[in-house]
Each structure stands twice: as structure tokens, then as C-alpha cells.
Amino acid sequence: MAAVLETQDLTYVYSPGSPFARTAVDHVNIAIEEGESVGVIGHTGSGKSTLIQQLNGLLRPTSGKILLHGKDIWAEPKKIRAVRFQVGMVFQYPEYQLFEETVLKDIAFGPKNKGLSDEEAMEKAKEAAEFTGLKRSLWEKSPFELSGGEKRRVAIAGVIAMDPDVLVLDEPAAGLDPKGRDVLLAQIGSYHQHRKNTVLLISHSMEDIARTADRVLVMNKGKAAMFDTTPNVFARSAELETMGLRVPQVTAIMTRLQAMGCPVPSGVLTLEQAIKELLPLVKKKEADENAQ
């Protein structure tokens, strides 16, 4: 598979040359494959946000390169806007960026900036609204009349409508109730499966990461500490803990059970998987007890 996004010795220093200089991203080399879903985790201040803001050219790296489809995105600084349509970025609490009169118009803002005609942009907007599960009755309403969760969806639809090759989401579920959280993540998952494009998801919830990501990038003190498949990363719980992170609760419980001599496999990441593993064991035990 070809790498859609690649960083080479990517380094970002805040206020370089002054006494306040701080290296936020330190020689990061990663390659993100086409069509994969990558989870990004890291302690607050580990450089996650700085890293992803460079991926779509909002921040210009102090040194190093970012290759999008093999081409340096800063080769022609004047064309950096084109990169932003290919790497769609959904910021934290994106509902605060809404401004248009109607939901659809707001979603169409990105496609219109891309140069699409009004009708084409509307078409894209409707498609994206459908994708994020916004009810048709909301489409012509003012975005300010919607509930928090609905606003969040409008904002995410606004980025999806640009048809990016890579979708980057910074804590998309922050501040939502558990049900809203599940629905939103499921929708992102189905979007990923449908469009077959690349998704980068930043989250503080290891459970969310375990559920959605094929591979996990762990950032620590500006460096890419790990970049491996999700089970492999979560198998290194001791290391993660030294970085202020942890493994999903289910994984921790299953690892404990294994240590206690229970015949369960390692690398269990989700509740569904755990149930599948544990239920036969429980049933077997019940049957044994009944037999006695």
C-alpha cells in the first residue's frame, strides 16, 4: 500500500530563537497508509495537536517535511490551500465555528471555497449531512438553534463535504453524552468504511481508540514513541503508563485474568470481544458445577 501522508524528521519549535523556545514536535517520522484508520494518543502537551496542525499546513514546520501523496506540501507555499481540502481537519469543539444562516449553507462553506458551483456545493452538503445522520427537518434551520450534539455533527459534515483524502478529527466526541459519543464514533467508522479514505482520530479515551483504530500513534514529549497495530500498542501497558496513558479497561481486566490463570487470549480490546471470550468460559464453569 502507498503512504498517503508521510513525515520526514518533522520538527516544530514554538518561538524559536527566544528564551521561550519550546520544541513541541521533535523529529517525527511516520507514514500513514492509504485507507487506514489511525488513532493518536498522548498526554496533554505531548505535541499531538501541533503535529496534526502541520499535516494540513496550518502550521509550517520549523524543519523537516510533510509528504502528501509523495509530494512536499510546502513545495509551493502559495498553493497550501489546496492541501487543506485534501487533509480535512475537524478541531476540538468544532461547533464554535458555525456561522451561516442555515445548516446546509454552513456545510457548503468548505466545498464552495474549493471552487464548486453553488448547486454542486449544496449536493455535497446534503450528502455529508446524510452521512452524519442529520435529520432533514434540521437542514434549513439556523445552526444556532440546534442542540450541542447536532451542532457538532454539522461542523463535522462541513469538513466531510470537502471530500478530503485524509480526515483528521481532534477529540470529536469530547463533551458529548455516552450515547451521543457511541453514535458519533459509529458514524465516523461507517464513513471510513464507505469512503475507504484515511482517518486520523485523536482521543483521550482509550476505549474509543481501541474500537476505531487499525494502528495507534503514541506521542510522548514531542516524539513518536510508538506507532504500531492497536493490539501491539495496548500490549505495552507498563510503558504507556509511564507516559501518563493507560490501556482500555477491558484490556486491563483481561490481562489480569490471564495472569490469574484464566485461559483467555491477550490483545482483547473491546467489550464485545471480551464477552465473546468470557461467555463460553462462564457457561462451561456453570455446566461443570451442575454436573457435580
Partner: peptide, 13 residues
């Protein structure tokens, strides 16, 4: 600053 970044990410010029 935040809002500007967000709109730029949507291609605002």
C-alpha cells in the same frame, strides 16, 4: 485564533 484556524481548515481565504 482558534476560529481562524478552523475556518482556514475549511479553505477560507
Amino acid at each position: 485564533d482558534k476560529i481562524m484556524s478552523a475556518q482556514k481548515a475549511r479553505g477560507a481565504d
